[in-house]
Design a binder for these strands. Structure first.
Length: 809
RNA sequence: GCGGGUAUGGCGGAAUUGGCAGACGCGCAGGAUUUAGGUUCCUGUGGAGCGAUCCGUGUGGGUUCGACCCCCACUACCCGUACCA
């Protein structure tokens, strides 16, 4: 009878080691340590009712590998986890099922926790944070108060994005193609009084400080584009009524070509001019039409310019004194620049379209393009030369801009100006499940911040979580809660009933991990000094212009008021690609192609899932899930298991495996650093193939288990124990490799004749070029192609190939 | 339109950054084990050709002894953004 080998029983091995790690607290970060610190961060999940999606394990496993590797390299590692638990889906579920969102949240967090533990991540579970915990949101509210006290939070009435279905204000970032990002309903403009955060005050620093951090380039580019800095000039035009009309332009050089002006429909001067406008009815009608258009309609109609010419008032071009007409049109945005433009149809596509439709004059002031009556000439470089522009004539565009800017400054009618696309952050939500904004309205004293000793301002219990029909938060119906006393005069006052957006809690959570149970501060100074900044933060590209930008803003503010020690929160930022369903489509319930990690773990084990999700392809690219390919990773682990059981008991390395082992140690280390997890795994698969061919020793296996353990930690712990290893494999040092041992004694080199591969030769590793050429020429297959030819030149790439260039004699 | 990215076997993807294209895995084919299926283990697997060989990295040019890689001109798809003056 053959002895039946122990089967690779992942279902019992995995929980066993998860329990042992937890009991031994192997992943707990030390608050003080002689070791260098490493803070690795993943974006904490939103605990949805659906549980973990297979998209989650990709970044989580990647950072788990990185942090496990860092621990083996001797770092004191902080790798925390938490839950970003405020937000609409939970609230919507609560509305539908009449359960308190806090209860739903608790259940969902429990389920997420179970799933995350099931995958064997080395999180420090003693530092879990939950943004809906009053001990946490106390500090979210505290930060808001500091922003308010420093003039960075203000309330204003402004047109906001209003979701017609959620009955809620949305940030610009939450409006996707004119519809609500969450529910897909049309978004319209609505005037509402909103709390705003002045992120625009940090626009320049948010651009400049990107130079000091190690973010992948596309993240930097996307943030810069989103902030949208443009330089130009502000110019004041006089209206015939005597009013000043200030415009922003990036092309002050084209001022002589400004043949009309356009104001946004919301521009304040229109109201002022009402008495003198002969066509005020038409103007009012246009304003109304523009306001009621949804964003969707605006963008759909953006090819066709509309507008109304103001009858009764004109503007004067300050450079030549010419009177020019003024229009209103919705192609000029109230929220950018000054809400008014000078139109230069000869050199701007939009102005050109408008001018053609409304019959405005088109005057060329930059030559070098085609006929400006047929198309606008918009080149901003040195290809164009100024004409019809008096003192600017003969200059290039680049030369003309400083000249005209200086001229405007001297005349007192303009100055250089920088503008940003970035707008202030709309911070109010008319929703229940968010942090209450700690502000009180007093008819006598105005808005008053809640005294800090009254924090946290708790969310009260309400009967219904639905917003009111007029768009007020459900909190507005809680009379007992709303009515309070003014912190300033003690008189009757009302609380703010809006709550904060979901982005609030996630804007600083990484700081709380450093000192999660502190009740005196968001984190102690010692903890902040020790752990800041986050060394490596991996997250999705979809958060580049939202969470990532918001949290950089908050962090810079906290830096300015002396709370945090670094200007930037994150030293390094990387990003992963999406996991798509089979067929290459986004995974979604409606498509029925969602893969549940629970099922994969049940069928193949967590180690196989971890390995597969890292092997699936380039970490930064989107990748398609394949049930079949998962099996390949399971087979690999089976082979590892079988080899460990059958290996030679020698603690030494098998000579035949020596070079492969050293090479793989180096390759896996380099690949983890470069997030090339797929090729790291491929290299270990190749090594295992070599073990099968060459045979392997216990020493070989233990080295393999050490470098495989960040990827597939459970099976490696089990086999490590089985082979008599000391302690946990995850606590071992990363094996050293010997550069000299990574090369074999002999190398195979390709021989090319005139650039075509004709043979392969084996030469000693250090062979010099002459010897290599001689060996190549001696090869019979090569001689077939060199017979009767003379050698003109030979190129030797050591260890790779030799190319013989020959010509007929 | 603008910004970013991608294009390599039947499929997912490699290629030391200018040096043997297709590593590794899936799938497929043949064989061994098995009563059978599954598992496991060999062997083969870019295309054409009996063959020596020839052709092959989206398209068309170029540089080079040598190009998936660099340059020029295109095409297709994906992501972001959208009248930002």
């Amino acid at each position: 009878m053959e002895v039946c080998a122990l089967k690779y029983d992942f279902a019992s091995i995995e929980p066993k080691w998860q329990k042992k790690w937890e009991e031994a607290k192997v992943f707990a970060a030390a608050d003080k340590s002689d070791k260098p610190k490493f803070y690795g961060l993943i974006e904490f999940p939103y605990p949805s009712g659906q549980g973990l999606h297979v998209g989650h394990p990709r970044p989580f496993t990647a950072m788990d590998i990185v942090t496990r590797k860092r621990r083996m390299d001797g770092y004191n590692v902080l790798f925390p986890i938490g839950f970003d638990a405020f937000g609409l889906p939970t609230e919507n579920y609560a509305i539908k099922n009449h359960v308190h969102p806090a209860i739903v949240t608790k259940q969902n967090i429990a389920n997420f926790t179970r799933q995350l533990k099931m995958l064997g991540y080395g999180f420090d579970w003693d530092r879990v944070v939950d943004t809906t915990d009053p001990d946490y949101y106390k500090w979210t509210q505290w930060i808001f108060l500091q922003l308010y006290k420093h003039g960075l939070a203000y309330k204003t009435t402004m047109p906001v994005n209003w979701c017609t279905s959620c009955k809620c204000v949305l940030a610009n970032e939450e409006v996707v193609e004119g519809v609500c990002e969450r529910c897909g309903s049309p978004v319209i403009r609505k005037e509402k009084s909103q709390w705003m955060l002045k992120i625009t005050a940090y626009a320049q620093r948010l651009i400049d400080d990107l130079d000091d951090v190690d973010f992948i380039e596309r993240v930097k580019i996307q943030q810069r584009n989103w902030i949208g800095r443009s330089t130009g000039a502000e110019v004041t035009f006089k209206a015939t009524t005597g009013d000043d009309i200030v415009v922003f332009t990036t092309r002050p050089d084209t001022l002589f070509g400004a043949t009309y002006m356009v104001l946004s429909p919301e521009h304040a001067l229109i109201k002022k001019w009402a008495p003198v406008l002969k066509n005020m009815d038409e103007v009012t009608a246009y304003q109304k039409a523009a306001a009621s258009k949804s964003d969707l309609e605006r963008t759909e109609l953006n090819k066709d310019k509309t507008g109304v010419c103001l009858d009764g008032v004109k503007a004067v071009n300050p450079v030549n004194g010419r009177e020019i007409p003024i229009f209103i049109s919705d192609y000029v945005l109230a929220t950018y620049g000054t809400g008014a433009i000078m139109a230069v149809p000869a050199h701007d596509d939009r102005d050109w379209d408008f001018a053609k439709k409304f019959g405005c004059e088109i005057i060329e002031v930059v030559s070098g393009g085609e006929d400006v009556q047929k198309a606008a000439f918009t080149a901003k470089d040195d290809t164009g030369i100024l004409v019809n522009s008096e003192f600017l004539n003969g200059l290039t565009v680049k030369q003309a801009i400083p000249v005209i800017t200086k001229w405007l400054e001297e005349k007192g009618i303009g100055r250089a100006q920088v503008n940003y696309k970035l707008r202030d952050w709309v911070f109010s939500r008319q929703r229940y499940w968010g942090e209450p904004i700690p502000m009180v309205w007093c008819d006598k004293c105005g808005w008053q911040p809640l005294p800090e000793d009254q924090l946290p301002l708790l969310l009260p219990e309400v009967e219904s979580y639905e917003p009111t029909d007029d768009g007020e938060s459900p909190l507005s119906k809680m009379t007992d809660w709303v009515n309070t006393t003014c912190p300033c005069c003690g008189g009757p006052a009302r609380r703010e009933t809006d709550t904060m957006p979901q982005w609030a809690g996630s804007s600083w959570y990484f700081l709380r991990y450093m000192d999660p149970r502190n009740d005196k501060a968001l984190a102690s100074k010692e903890a902040l000094d020790y752990w800041s900044p986050v060394d490596w933060y991996n997250g999705g590209m979809e958060h580049t212009t939202l969470h990532l930008l918001y949290s950089r803003f908050w962090h810079k503010f906290l830096y300015d008021i002396g709370v945090v020690p670094t200007k930037e929160p994150y030293q390094k930022r990387t990003s992963h690609g999406m996991i798509l369903g089979e067929g290459g489509e986004k995974m979604s319930k409606s498509r029925g192609n969602v893969v549940n990690p629970d099922d994969v773990v049940k069928n193949y084990g967590a180690d196989t899932l971890r390995l597969y999700i890292m092997f699936i392809g380039d970490f930064e690219q989107a990748a398609v899930w394949s049930d079949n390919a998962v099996k390949g990773c399971k087979r690999f682990l089976d082979k590892v298991w079988n080899l460990a059981e059958s290996c030679d008991p020698s603690p030494e390395h098998t000579p035949a495996n020596e070079a492969g082992l050293h090479r793989t140690i180096r390759k896996v280390a380099d690949d983890i650093e470069g997030m090339k997890f797929n090729t790291a795994i491929a290299a270990m698969m190749t090594l295992v193939g070599d073990f099968q061919k060459n045979g392997c020793s216990r020493g070989d296996m233990k080295t393999l288990l050490t470098i495989l353990s960040p990827f597939a930690p459970h099976i490696c712990e089990e086999l490590w124990e089985m082979l008599g290893g000391e302690g946990f494999v995850c606590n071992q040092s990363w094996p050293a490799y010997d550069e000299s041992k990574t090369v074999a004694d002999t190398v195979q080199m390709a021989v090319q004749v005139n650039g075509k591969v004709r043979a392969n030769i084996v030469v000693p590793a250090g062979a010099d070029n002459d010897a290599v050429v001689a060996a190549a020429q001696a090869d019979p297959k090569v001689q077939k192609f060199t017979a009767g030819m003379s050698l003109v030149k030979s190129i030797v790439v050591p260890g790779r190939l030799v190319n013989l260039i020959v010509r007929p004699q």
